[in-house]
């Protein structure tokens, strides 16, 4: 059972986006439900609109059409955290101070935030690197700091834009395992953008495939919460093959 059950999700209805000066829509007719506690992966080839959709969900851009609502308790403003593709840490701050940043923005003092920061650092295996500076860390470590920073406020909604795309396979597997464990412990609503079929199947509760700015298909992934040995299981290989075939089919249709 998760330690915390969050009550916020996202509902998008009829969402479209056309950037200024462009003649075609980047996104059209997007209807998407991200229920509280779901792990939704946006999968698709480059340029299909995954990152644009994530930016709309993060409210960094406004949709040209349709609406996006955060669902949840009426009196509660949902807390949203973003993990960008690059770790984007403040290079002049230590690991501790980088993770503390979201709490500082909320006006929390360093002393009062110490426990929450250390909890987040421990959860991402960074407890021994609290005093290090970003330039002293490997790519994988930096991404861990970025995730620790996102988790420090125990967010209702976690938005991740291809966070492991630049990492080697071994580090990526390890971070996928860690992310999955963190998700099970805290159960925020997660929207995760990726190119990787393997990553999408391993992490998600639902895969949403995008093609040419539209949702092409959605697939629930029901492997349950414990996925420690999932990569060795036959049903995992079967779902991976199915997702790959679906994507190949989409590309074949287009070509």
């Amino acid at each position: 059972m998760p330690d915390t059950i969050h009550g916020a999700g996202i509902v998008a209805r009829g969402v479209g986006k056309r950037y200024a000066g462009r003649s075609v829509d980047t996104l059209s007719d997007i209807d998407l439900d991200v229920p509280a506690g779901a792990f939704v992966t946006l999968l698709g080839p480059s340029g299909c609109g995954k990152s644009t959709l994530l930016r709309l969900l993060a409210r960094l851009n406004r949709p040209t059409r349709g609406r996006i609502d955060y669902t949840g308790r009426a009196e509660h403003v949902p807390d949203c955290a973003l993990v960008p593709q690059e770790p984007t840490l403040l290079p002049w701050k230590s690991v501790f101070d980088n993770v503390y940043l979201p709490l500082k923005l909320r006006g929390q003092s360093k002393g009062a935030a110490r426990d929450a920061v250390f909890e987040s650092l421990c959860a991402t295996g960074l407890q021994d690197r609290a005093d290090a500076y970003p330039r002293e860390l490997s790519g994988g470590m930096k991404m861990r700091v970025s995730i620790a920073r996102a988790l420090v406020t125990d967010p209702d909604v976690l938005l991740m834009d291809e966070p492991f795309a630049a990492l080697d396979e071994l580090t990526r597997h390890r971070l996928n395992d860690d992310l999955r464990a963190l998700y099970e412990r805290r159960r925020p609503a997660v929207v995760f953008v990726t190119h990787s079929v393997e990553e999408a199947v391993f992490l998600s509760t639902t895969i949403v495939a995008l093609r040419d700015g539209r949702i092409d298909w959605q697939l629930p992934v029901d492997f349950g919460p414990d996925r420690t040995d999932l990569r060795e299981r036959k049903d995992y290989a079967r779902v991976r093959a199915e997702v790959s075939a679906r994507l190949r089919g989409a590309w074949t249709d287009r070509s």
């Binding site: 930016r55 409210r59 955290a81 973003l82 960008p84 984007t88 940043l101 500082k104 923005l105």
Partner: peptide
Amino acid sequence: SHDLHDLFTVRRASSWQRLVLLELP
């Protein structure tokens, strides 16, 4: 970096916080 600006936007940082904690450093 635009990504750092995005981070401050998502975390609803005030204009003053953005200046003091991000832009000036």
